[in-house]
Simulated assay, not measured.
Amino acid sequence: MLDLTRDSFDESHPSQAAQPAAADDQALLDAYSNAVIGVTERVGPAVVRVETGAKAPNARERGGLGSGIVISPDGLVLTNSHVVGSSKEIRLRDIEGIVTDARVLGVDADTDLALLRADGVRDLPYASLGDSKTLRRGQLVVAIGNPLGFESTVTAGVVSALGRSIRSVSGRTIEDVIQTDAALNPGNSGGPLVASSGKVIGINTAIINGAQGICFAVASNTAQFVLSEIIRHGYVRRAYIGVSGQTAPVPRRHAVVAGVDNKMGALLAQIEPDGPAAKAGLSPGDVVVRLDGVVVNGVDDLIRVLDRDRIGRTLEMDVLRMGRLRGIDVHPIERKPVARQGSAR
């Protein structure tokens, strides 16, 4: 007769097979938690609350509210241009509650970014910008900010998609945007999106009203470009040809026929009437693969090539049209900076 009173069936003790599985689950959970905790401890002290508008005893009731990330020990702070708005009074509140006045060094409404400098402070905790081109879909990311005024809030998620385009406050399309499902709310704007390495790979910028789990951040490579331009000129000088587009794959057969190595290019979607591109004969559907001798693997590359050094010059642009390579001369002009406008929020 079978003896069911001993080891053959004992509900009071988990089976030996179940124990390793539970241990493995715990190890995975600990690894995830440790990654988020590590990022929070490294980057959290560099996140500040950005308050705009008139000073008041309770800043949550008046003025605007957002987040920012300190990127240098002497007080350079990146945030969103829509957080700063047209406000002339800006204050930064750090994780310890210390409030510091700040001034605007420059804004770029085209990318919804602004650069501030905290007044009279040195040796601040700061975070470093990473390389957003190394991101992969599904990668762990952490958002840190002040949603709805709740300081130092941490949420985690993954990179949902790369290369998105969203509309900036100036009406221009922001290209190469990171989509994430890390929970964001009003007040997160301007705060960092951080990889598990502790590098800032995006500046949180927008939430789609009514959507769940769809949030966006401006890529850190775009932020690095804007940062360097503001430091040098006070605004972002750009050459302008009057197009909008998106990053798109180049079919292998087209690349072979054209004799180019591009796997990706900048697909032109719209051409502004009477703009430099229209005058040069560019058309919607053209795929830019090279400009002024520089390989263009997407819209991000096209934007970067159109820098201040190419204003007023005649540039040779190689495009794929109906699968065939064409060379077109285009003459960029300087795009005027967008004036600060709108209320802070």
Rank of each mutant, 00 (worst) to 15 (best):
T134K: 15
V194F: 04
V36C: 08
T173W: 10
I241M: 09
K88V: 06
Y240V: 08
D119H: 13
L306A: 01
A27L: 12
K263P: 00
A278N: 02
D74E: 15
D307C: 01
V236E: 06
G242Q: 08
R290W: 00
P147W: 05
V48M: 05
D123S: 13
V289P: 02
G285D: 03
G68R: 02
T52W: 02
A182Y: 04
P14F: 11
Q139V: 00
A183S: 14
N209V: 12
N262E: 11
N209Q: 14
A118F: 08
R103D: 09
G66Q: 10
A206Q: 09
S87Y: 10
Q270N: 15
L315V: 06
V260S: 09
V158L: 12
M264G: 01
K336A: 15
A248Q: 14
E272V: 14
A223P: 06
S343L: 13
R326H: 15
I230R: 00
R172W: 02
A22L: 15
S67A: 07
Q26H: 12
V296F: 03
L113S: 11
R232Y: 01
E316K: 13
P284H: 06
S72L: 04
S196T: 06
L76E: 11
I71V: 15
D25N: 14
F216A: 03
Q139H: 03
A183W: 00
I203N: 07
S244V: 09
V36K: 10
M322I: 03
N185G: 08
P251V: 09
D274L: 12
D123I: 01
Q139W: 01
A127W: 00
A239Q: 11
L78S: 09
M322P: 00
V256L: 14
P186H: 10
D24T: 11
V84M: 11
V288W: 00
V200Q: 03
P14A: 13
L193M: 12
R167H: 05
D292F: 02
N80G: 09
S160D: 03
I174G: 02
V177A: 04
F150I: 11
I207M: 10
